[in-house]
Simulated scan of single mutants.
Amino acid sequence: MRQADESYVEMEELLEKSGQFIAEQLGVEDAYITAGCYAALVLASATVMTGSDPDKCAQLPDTTGLKDEIVFQKMQHYGYDRAFTIPGSKLISVGDENGCTAETLNDAIGENTAAVAYLIQPDQGNAVPLAEAVGIAHSHNLPLIADAASQIYPLDYFRRNAQSADLVCFGGKYFNAPHSTGFVCGRKDLIETVRTHGFIGPRPVGRGMKVDRQEIIGLVTAIDIWLSTNHEVRSKEQDGRYAVLAEGLENLDGVSCEVHYQEKSHTLSNLHVAFDTAISGKDAAQVAQELDVGTPRIKVNTHGKETIVISAYTLNAGEEDIIANALRHLLRG
């Protein structure tokens, strides 16, 4: 990123070449780097309404005369699904909180439908499966937009997700790119329209969603590193930090430590520290609060009243010792 700061570039070319690099790495037709996954979803939503028609592109967020409805399963609603509506589109909920059938999803598609949206998660519950939802969208000659923000590990899962729909959106922060970056990948014709709506288009709806050359190179470098990293070694390194934490707490009465592995999470694992509240005199929420206001500040999660959860993913070398010392002081009673 420092090297990128030393030179001026043609931004259009940089976005094109960086997108081609990502596409080659993930086995898709094309990609476009954005100001985070949310921005990717906004640009994708604009794209499915306008296509490549320059007049339609220019009229957003006025959707008069455009197909402006995006169909989305109600049980998949989440805090950021507002992104699908930002360029003027409407989110049409189908099914209920408990699930959706393929027939219900199919019947919800009408003359004003521009696309189907989907939230990719490891466990889809009673939602219509992704592949089936894509098939339903395609049967109506419509694209499917997928939010796969953090679904990047294992690496074959990352690639399968990238290849799973017409437009798939990811957050760069999950593979250690700048927090303010992300990308959308998929069909080349649709990505070309995403570029039109991006911040250097002729009248771009995404003008405020800028990324600079340093961020673009940061994301390209980060995804290159992520896809070439030996994640088994990374997992063992995290285990080593948990071992230090467990050793620092092993002589405390009523305290036990157990590593929990997460099959489809970029963070890989976490450490559950269970303790006897009768001995410590405080529950997990109280321990977490005291860690949070301590010096240095330590952030942990809780699981029930007697367990705190620690992730090594964001720790720097040696910080496990700091956490062990703080916990030893709080849990010894």
Rank of each mutant, 00 (worst) to 15 (best):
M1K: 12
A4P: 09
D5N: 14
D5W: 05
D5L: 12
E6S: 11
E6M: 13
Y8R: 14
Y8H: 12
M11T: 10
L14M: 08
L15P: 00
E16C: 01
S18C: 06
G19S: 00
A23C: 07
Q25H: 11
Q25F: 03
G27M: 03
D30A: 15
Y32K: 01
Y32V: 13
A35G: 05
Y38W: 08
L41Q: 10
A46K: 07
M49W: 05
S52V: 10
D53Q: 08
P61H: 10
D62S: 05
K67S: 13
E69T: 13
F72S: 02
K74V: 11
H77M: 15
Y78K: 04
G79M: 11
D81K: 13
T85M: 14
P87L: 10
S89R: 03
S89Y: 05
S89K: 01
K90Q: 08
K90E: 04
L91E: 15
G95D: 14
D96C: 13
E97G: 12
E97L: 15
E103T: 07
E103F: 00
N106F: 08
A108N: 04
E111P: 07
V116S: 05
L119H: 14
I120C: 07
D123H: 13
D123W: 07
G125W: 06
G125T: 03
G125M: 05
V134M: 04
N141I: 02
P143A: 09
L144Q: 08
I145T: 11
I145M: 12
I145R: 06
A146P: 02
A149N: 04
S150A: 15
L155S: 04
R160I: 09
N161V: 02
N161Y: 03
S164W: 10
D166H: 14
G171W: 05
N176M: 13
P178L: 08
H179I: 06
K188D: 05
K188Q: 04
L190V: 07
T193Y: 06
I200V: 08
V205M: 13
G206V: 02
R207M: 10
V211Q: 01
V211G: 09
D212P: 05
D212C: 04
R213G: 04
R213A: 13
Q214W: 01
I217G: 02
G218N: 02
T221L: 08
A222V: 09
L227N: 04
S228C: 00
N230L: 11
H231T: 01
S235H: 03
K236R: 15
G240Y: 04
Y242W: 08
L249W: 06
E250D: 14
S256V: 07
T267P: 01
T267K: 09
S269Q: 15
S269C: 09
V273L: 00
V273T: 03
F275I: 02
D276F: 00
T277M: 07
I279Y: 02
E290Q: 11
L291G: 08
P296W: 01
I298D: 07
K299V: 13
I308K: 00
I308L: 02
V309W: 02
V309P: 01
I310D: 06
Y313Q: 11
L315C: 08
G318N: 08
I323M: 14
L327V: 03
